[in-house]
Amino acid sequence: MNRPIDREHATGTATTPARVPAGASTAAATRAADLTARYVDAAMRTVPEAQRADLAAELRASIDDQVEARIADGEDPHSAERAVLTGLGDPDRLAAGYTDRPLYLIGPRLFLDWWRLLKLLLAIVVPAVMGAVALGGALDEDPFGAIIGSVVVTGLGVAVHLAFWTTLVFAIVERSAGKDAAPFAPWSVDKLPEQQDSGRSVAELVTSLVLLAVAAGAVIWDHARGLVVTSQTDESFLDPSLWPTWTTGLFVLLAAEALLAVTVYARRRWTTPLAAVNALLDVGLAAGVMWLYSQDRLVNPEFFASLVDEDAAEVTSIVSTVLLFVIVGSAVWDAIDAFRKARRAGPA
């Protein structure tokens, strides 16, 4: 904040502001003209043409008045002018005051709309695009490093574009709408967020136990009878070499997940340690599946060979890749979701 002109000077000349002899000003004004002229020019740059001449003349007169008052109090013309202009501050800021122009990109009226939309877009679009790029790269059998590279670069690019264009549109709306215009949609109590489920309901427990049982049952069924029993095939969908070591590992993981689900229900809430255990199980699952994928041991090559006549190897490879993405994607989401629920439930 700029301090006003010295109080002593102000009170000393307050009673006779208009009676400063005109002659005293001319010499000082000529000497000081340079800086003041530059200041007035700078301030008028952003003022609409129609008001410019009038405002410039008024500002000029006000500055000269202030400089004169200081000179009359014994200050030398040069430092008087500098002091007055310094007190007025940045000319663009002064001009913004004259023309009611906002000195911010997005003001309080639109900020929350902007912030919510931006968070929503980033949370949906960036992961979707990154996932799509990764899947595309994997289906093309690009090297792992190249896939990671293109996923990161595309993700960053998309995030930057989203942020830039959203912000640009809001900045334009901020400047085009009237100063007292309402936000996009007024707030009402109906917009209060629901109290979120923190993962402790019976329904959630039953759902996770049923899903785990179905997963285990499907693996056993696949091994014993083949995933789809048709006249054409009784081959298993998963690579038969996974039985029994890898499948046993999977059953241990599934059992641990079931135990965890029961624990969460018993504690009536997710906690950060429980979420961490859940994340470990998810990492275990994802790591195992990624390892098998890299060894080409996920899907039984005979399965598609018995179903389609041509290109069975390619179909197998594509299905393996999609399966990998689905499993790893669900594992990542499950791990994140547990931490979110733990955070929502608050400290233990």
Binding site: P4, A61, S62
Partner: peptide
């Protein structure tokens, strides 16, 4: 009144 004169009077 004009700008500077008013400024002074306000301060006084």
């Amino acid at each position: 009144g004009y700008g500077y004169g008013l400024l002074e009077e306000l301060a006084a």
